[in-house]
């Protein structure tokens, strides 16, 4: 294989991986705050794209505003979902919460179909134009945007966690929820913010990728599995590990392509099962024993 082809694969890997990273961040943030895996995370991604398309093509809002509107609306949906469906049973056994989020994913996908139909919907690139060429490999402008968004997200989250009261409260909850509660942290608020933030990140990923792939009401489940595979690669513990997991998964997927392009679609699933079965604590974390 030529160097430029290799580079092309790496670029594609880092592009998809960035999307997985944003979803993985969503899973990780919610899990850290609640010990819930939100099976509706993929639907936030779908809704992000859908609402942006709707605002842009349906309401004729400028693209930037459409994107912002979509992300904010989905964040609101996330917070509302937490308030109405999760909080009332927050102390129930994990099974009940899994089922609630599964129900949520069904409802979100289905309502999106009622509202926006079942066709694939396109969105223009943020900044249309020819791809950049770098060492013989092409980089679409939208890919650059995706990278910018991921980088900005990581910086933003770092600032949030280190510089703000809310972020420090979120971190305290991540370390030890009980202790955080005893220290007087409003854990209910942290949980709601976490859902909103996770939803916003999912939506952001969905919006960023829709110009390249278009969107449909039923794409949530597929991307959620990939995002979760990335999150679990990262160990579901730290946000940075989630990003690393996402990028790694994107690269692994591309690494398979030279051998078989069909297999690309199962790579994430295979990684998911492999990690769950062999190293459920993720690649970067040491085992933690639970107390009997």
């Amino acid at each position: 294989m030529e160097a430029s082809e290799l580079l092309q694969l790496v670029i594609a890997g880092l592009k998809n991986g960035s999307i997985y990273a944003l979803l993985a961040l969503g899973f990780t943030i919610v899990y850290a705050a609640t010990n819930v895996i939100n099976f509706a995370q993929g639907e936030f991604y779908m809704l992000g794209g859908m609402l942006a398309v709707f605002a842009f093509s349906g309401l004729n809002v400028p693209l930037v505003a459409a994107v912002a509107l979509a992300v904010v609306t989905v964040a609101g949906i996330g917070a509302l979902f937490e308030r109405l469906a999760i909080r009332p049973r927050k102390d129930a056994d994990p099974m009940a919460l899994i089922i609630i989020t599964v129900g949520g994913s069904l409802v979100f996908a289905s309502v999106a179909r009622h509202l926006f139909g079942s066709d694939a919907l396109p969105l223009p690139e943020f900044t249309p134009g020819p791809s950049f060429v770098f060492a013989g490999a092409a980089i679409e402008r939208q890919t650059i945007w995706i990278w910018v968004i991921v980088t900005a997200t990581v910086i933003g989250l770092t600032l949030l966690y280190n510089r703000t009261r809310l972020g420090r409260a979120m971190r305290a909850c991540m370390e030890n929820r009980e202790a955080a509660r005893l220290m007087g942290i409003d854990t209910a608020r942290v949980v709601m913010v976490s859902f909103a933030l996770a939803a916003a990140l999912g939506a952001l990923a969905g919006v960023a990728v829709t110009p390249l792939t278009s969107t449909r009401f039923d794409i949530g489940a597929g991307i959620a599995v990939k995002g979760f595979a990335a999150a679990i690669l990262g160990g579901l513990g730290s946000p940075l590990a989630a990003v690393a997991g996402g990028l790694l998964l994107g690269l692994i997927e591309q690494a398979v392509i030279p051998f078989s392009s069909v297999l690309k679609d199962v790579v994430a699933l295979a990684v998911l099962l492999l990690v769950l079965f062999v190293r459920p604590q993720g690649l970067f974390r040491r085992t933690r024993k639970e107390k009997v």
Binding site: P88, R89, A96, L97, I99, I100, G103, R113
Partner: peptide, 19 residues
């Protein structure tokens, strides 16, 4: 047309109100 919505709502409502 609303079958999926019904399933989803059933899951949520059963867990919330009639475990």
């Amino acid at each position: 047309d609303w079958e999926s919505d019904i399933h989803g709502m059933v899951l949520i409502l059963v867990m919330l109100f009639m475990p």
